[in-house]
């Protein structure tokens, strides 16, 4: 992966950003989706009295929002001009830029979701929480989800069945990441030290690396007819 790949990634990221900016309604739709989901949680739970439920709910919401964020990836790949663009770049640059972009997008959505959780459910259960760990978890969880779901979306898109298959293929694959991140968040809310949470942190990093490496290695087989 040389300098040219980094340049390609930069250009592809700019392309993604521009298309996102042109179609602001996509992101707006995700925000509204997030808002209504959390509001429904707020109305149905009334009150969350323990940290574990708080953390688990945050990530379940995060998971569903991430799946929704992938719909755009599924749609946009159909556009012929994008296919042309992708033939100009190396497959490694294409998948890395996509993963980076979606990871960032999901991270932004998760931060937004965190703010909404604090607004609706308050921080009464978070007195002991280690904020550094929570934010680390939020970033690692988002990158993991972003990478895995980007790859599954590319795969589902190639089947021509789209959204329905995406959920079937994607949910089982993100289970290890999800249980690790939920546990990491729970321990962060309980306010344990970094050392105590070290196993989870290490696992999160391992899962992230695995997802990126696998996507990078397998995408070249996937992207062209």
């Amino acid at each position: 992966m040389g300098v040219s790949t980094v340049r390609e990634i930069k250009i592809l990221l700019q392309k993604e950003w521009k298309s996102e900016f042109r179609q602001k309604e996509h992101f707006a739709a995700l925000v509204i989706y997030l808002l209504s989901t959390i509001f429904i949680c707020y109305l149905s739970f009334e009150k969350i009295s323990d940290g574990q439920t708080w953390g688990a709910l945050l990530w379940v919401t995060g998971l569903f929002t991430s799946f929704n964020a992938m719909h755009k990836a599924l749609d946009s790949a159909h556009q012929p001009q994008l296919l042309h663009l992708y033939t100009l770049a190396t497959p490694g640059a294409v998948i890395l830029s996509k993963c980076l972009y979606h990871a960032a997008q999901i991270a932004v959505l998760n931060v937004f979701s965190l703010v909404l959780f604090l607004l609706f459910f308050g921080d009464a259960v978070l007195i002991k929480m280690d904020w550094g760990q929570l934010i680390t978890g939020l970033i690692l969880g988002s990158t993991g989800l972003g990478t895995m779901l980007t790859f599954v979306a590319s795969l589902a898109q190639r089947t021509g069945q789209g959204v329905g298959l995406m959920a079937i293929l994607g949910f089982p694959l993100v289970v290890p990441l999800l249980i690790t991140i939920v546990k990491f968040t729970r321990l962060a809310i309980e306010g344990v030290t970094w050392a105590t949470n070290g196993y989870q942190l290490m696992l999160l990093i391992v899962l992230n690396v695995l997802a990126i490496v696998l996507s990078y290695l397998l995408f070249p087989y996937l992207w062209r007819e």
């Binding site: 293929l169 290890p176 899962l207």
Partner: peptide, 24 residues
């Protein structure tokens, strides 16, 4: 092609789920 790619993912996942995660 697609099922081979998914199979590789599934295998790695199996190793993580049955051999790595239970130890922690």
């Amino acid at each position: 092609k697609l099922s081979a790619i998914y199979n590789i993912f599934a295998f790695i996942l199996m190793v993580v789920l049955l051999m790595i995660l239970p130890r922690f």
